[in-house]
Simulated scan of single mutants.
Amino acid sequence: MKKIIISTLLTLLFWACKEKTKFSYSVTVSAPKDYPVEVHEGWLMDDQKKFICAMPKAGVANTGWLYDGKQAGQGGSKIPYHLNLTYVAYAEKKFYTVDADLPVDKILEEFNKGFDVEGDQKVEGKYPLVHDTYDTFTVGAAPGGVVVIWLSGNHNRVEICRLQAKEVFVDVNDFYQNADEENQQQFFDSWFKIAVPEKAQEEIREKGIPFGLWDNYRERFKYRFVLQPYDEKDVILTNDIRYYNGEQRFYLRPNELAKGEYELASIPYSIEPMFTKYHTDVLFDDQEMLSVFKKLQSKHPNKPMDIIIIPTFMYTDFKLSVKCEDEIIPLTKYKVKGVWGG
């Protein structure tokens, strides 16, 4: 009898652990806004090298580096172990392919870690925090064959890995029905004009494609946001932060923010902090943030930095600067999109 009980418990434990390795997700493909791509073919495979799903063929992908692509009914529940993807990069006039194993432990760790979100049901007049996890697996393709994988869901997005695609030849007749009977170069030239925004076309002709930019976005710095209110009573209650490397985190717990802990993260793209009475939306300039952060780090190696937020009287505007030890550099290229509340 004892052996039966032990066997039953082990079986239940096995299935409990097994359940934690299955997470339902959709699959999307994205690209920087001015550098669109389109899927030719691809798929995800599991640990047995069995097909999970195809990569979504949802037309031109240009939703932006910080956002997921269009959903086209592709997804799975098994942890993906391998990615194969071939796509056309219209701004570069090239096809790329990536065929690589994925960091399974990292994917599983992030799925299990998840994040907190506001629940749907009120309790004593408030929406309590509930635990949730990611529901989207996104493959981002940037110039130079840079491929980045993220998991995302409900104001949270985490980078899984960075892969390198290689240029490959794909006959245009295999890619799409070539009604106009274009050759390879004619196909690339015509779709460069169709898919790439005119302003981006001009910049590419004048300055070329900024290869390496998306890897620069992936550099991490140790910093935090610090509010310096004029009445010394206000605090940051929540903060929705997007980063230039495509990640996002929604800090919902005031006690978590009150700790003032430093995070190792990419440069910020935007913040939406909520204070006691007001909230705002601030956009950062990528080149300014990279320049300021790198300048301070070169003069103060390995020292953490503070992004200081100073509201003007009655919160009509905000002044921002970056501080490292005793040095402060004012920021000038950020944009305050608005201030609400009061």
Rank of each mutant, 00 (worst) to 15 (best):
M1G: 14
L9P: 07
T21R: 08
S24K: 14
V27L: 10
Y35K: 06
M45A: 15
K49W: 13
A61F: 01
A61T: 00
N62F: 02
N62G: 01
G64L: 03
D68W: 01
D68R: 07
S77K: 12
I79W: 02
Y81V: 04
N84H: 15
L85C: 06
L85K: 01
Y90Q: 05
K94Y: 07
K106H: 02
L108P: 00
L108H: 03
F111Y: 10
K113A: 11
K122D: 10
G125C: 09
G125V: 03
K126C: 00
Y127F: 14
L129Y: 01
L129F: 09
A141T: 07
G144K: 01
V146W: 09
R157W: 05
E159C: 13
E159Y: 08
E159D: 12
L163M: 04
E167M: 02
N173D: 11
Y176L: 09
Q177V: 11
A179E: 14
D180M: 12
Q186K: 10
F188N: 01
I194M: 13
A195S: 11
I209D: 03
W214G: 12
N216T: 13
R220P: 02
F225E: 07
V226N: 07
Q228C: 00
Q228A: 07
Q228H: 05
I236Y: 03
D240S: 13
N245C: 04
G246Y: 04
N255W: 08
A258W: 08
L264G: 03
S270L: 11
V282Q: 05
D285T: 08
M289E: 08
P304V: 03
M305V: 05
M305P: 06
D306N: 06
I309Y: 00
I309S: 01
I310G: 00
T312W: 03
V322P: 09
E327I: 02
I329G: 07
